[in-house]
Structure formats: structure tokens, C-alpha cells
Amino acid sequence: MVARLFVVLLFYSFSIQAAEVKEHLLANGLKILVKEEHRSPVVVSQIWYKVGSSYEPSGITGISHMLEHMMFKGTDKHPAGEFSKIIAENGGRENAFTGRDYTAYFQTLEKSRLAISFELEADRMQNIHLLADELEKELQVVMEERRMRTEDNPRAKLQEYLMAMAYSNSPYRNPVIGWPADIENYQVNDLQQWYQQWYAPNNATLVVAGDVQAKEVFKLAEQYFAPIPIQKIPELKPQTEMAQVGTRRMTVKLPAKVPYILMAYKVPSFKVVEEAWEVYALDVLAVVLDGGNSARLPAKLQHGQQIASSIGVGYDLGARLEELFMIEAT
């Protein structure tokens, strides 16, 4: 009874917090979410585009990530490097990241400088420069990033192999950063087409959290983003993974100091599940198995039998396609 009461209170607390997020939709389709948080005079602004590595066809894998890099290469109004310079001069921080189902850009600033973020993001949503000489330089940066994070990292390399083996036809089998041969052969036209297809207000969500008033944020967003025209976004075709008919195993031999095991089970995500309770059960299971030192796997395999030095469990219920429930150990 106590456990059930705790779960009820937990979900009630979560619903109260979620209700504090205010939402507004511009006429051009841009969704705006605002979470007022007045504990410090800071604001975080993020813009999320619904495009990532799972949207990419063969031959241009990783192009969403490459475009993320190129989005800092300037516009007519703000030349290459000026975006980051302006944010830094105003005491802020900024960065970007790409996932399988999204690409996002964010800035952290003093609250009165939110307009700076909006002006810069609205500008590069429609006016980015994609130049061959800048692409050539950034290709070297991305290739080095891949070497550092994947090629020279046995765990990351094994994870890449596992994803390619686990999925037969799902785009989740491709790495977010892309395959080396594809990266080496990007052309400016590839990036330009990708930018024009997916970077539009009706394919984006603006998220603002901090010491702000929601009404003022909506008004400011109208000023900077409302003039951007709506675009036709391509409709994605079904990308259903083929049914698996047997266990798949692979042994990867790489220079490493300790052995590493990675197991994955195909499971539904929230978007493709038939019964919603299943994804919540999987999410709870991940915590039961690996929610701290007293969780099942660390308690038994690390502290009990002492046959593992580390163990982890991962599951993303918010994935767009069928997901993997993963268990790793060294």
C-alpha cells in the first residue's frame, strides 16, 4: 500500500510540474513551450528540429549532424564565427547536439538578453550560408570527432557494431555521426537540400525556461519568428523493422584492457507501442535493474558476486521507432 501511494504521489507531482509549462503556436506552425523558473536571473533557449539520423537515406548518413556543424558558419547578417562571438560577449554559453530523431541548438543567457538568442536563431533558420570551403574545413573536424569518439573508443565501437547487427532495415542501425564513406563524400548540395527540407518553423519547437514571463516570451517570439514562412515538410514513409527470427551474436576484437559485454532486446517505444503501459513498465524495469548501488544488477553482480566492475541499463521510451533495451557490463 505504501509503495502504491508513493507511485501515485510521484505521478501526481510530475503532472503538477508538467502543467506549469505554457504552450503557444504561431501561425507559421512554430510551437513554443515556456517553463517559468524564477530562482535565478537566467534563461535557457532551445530550438529543436524534427530531423535526425533516422530521417537520412543511405549515402548521406550523418548529414543531420554535419548540418548542425555548418549552422555556425554564418549568414549575410552574421558572418562565420559571429554567432558564438555575440553569445560570448553577452556572457552566455551555446552549443548544439544531434540525435536519431532531432537536432537541437541552445543558448544560456542573462534573462534580459533572450532577444539576442531569438534574433540569431530566426536568422539562421532561413539564411544560413553553406559554402564549399567551409564544408571542406568542417569535414576534417567531423572526421576527427568520429575517430576520437568511436574509432578510438572500444565501447563506442562495439555499440556501433551492435546497432548495425540488431536492426535489419530500421534507420536506427546507422550511427548518428554517419559512416566514414558517407562523411567523406558530402557535397554542398546535399546539405542545402537537407536544410531546405527540414529547417522550417512548422518543423521546429522553441523551448524557453528560466526567469521569464510566458506572455513576454510569446510576444518576443512573434516578433522574430512569425515572419518566417511556412514550408512543406516531407512525409516520412513507414520504417517498420523486420521481425527477428533468432538470436544474433557477435564477438568484436579490439585493443582494450577489460572485456565488455553488451546485450540488447528489441522493445517498443511510446510511439509504436500497442499498449501504453508496456513502455512505462520497461522504463521502471530499467530503474529496478540499474537505479543505483542497491538496484538488482549492481547489488548482485558488482557488490555480491563481484563478477562485474560496472554495469548499466538503458532504454529510451521517447524514441520515434522500435527501440532497444540495452544492458552493458565490464
Score class of each variant (00 low, 15 high):
1 M>V: 09
3 A>P: 03
8 V>S: 15
10 L>H: 00
12 Y>N: 00
22 K>Q: 08
23 E>F: 13
28 N>D: 04
28 N>V: 06
32 I>S: 10
37 E>S: 03
39 R>P: 06
43 V>C: 02
51 V>L: 07
52 G>F: 11
53 S>A: 15
53 S>E: 09
58 S>P: 04
63 I>L: 10
68 E>G: 15
72 F>K: 00
92 G>N: 12
95 N>Q: 05
99 G>S: 08
100 R>A: 01
122 A>S: 15
122 A>E: 09
124 R>K: 10
128 I>M: 03
132 A>Q: 11
133 D>N: 08
136 E>T: 15
139 L>K: 12
147 R>Y: 11
148 M>C: 07
154 P>F: 04
156 A>V: 14
160 E>M: 04
165 M>I: 13
167 Y>F: 15
171 P>W: 02
173 R>S: 14
185 N>I: 01
185 N>M: 07
191 L>H: 00
194 W>T: 14
195 Y>F: 14
196 Q>Y: 07
198 W>V: 02
202 N>D: 03
202 N>A: 12
205 T>C: 14
207 V>W: 09
210 G>P: 02
211 D>R: 04
214 A>R: 00
216 E>L: 09
219 K>I: 08
227 P>D: 03
228 I>Q: 02
232 K>D: 09
237 K>Q: 15
243 A>C: 05
244 Q>H: 12
246 G>H: 10
246 G>T: 11
254 L>P: 07
257 K>Y: 12
259 P>N: 14
261 I>F: 12
263 M>A: 15
265 Y>L: 14
268 P>W: 06
275 E>K: 15
288 V>E: 09
293 N>L: 12
298 P>D: 01
298 P>N: 09
300 K>F: 07
300 K>H: 11
301 L>E: 07
304 G>I: 10
304 G>L: 13
306 Q>P: 03
306 Q>R: 09
312 G>I: 07
322 E>W: 04
325 F>A: 08
325 F>Y: 12
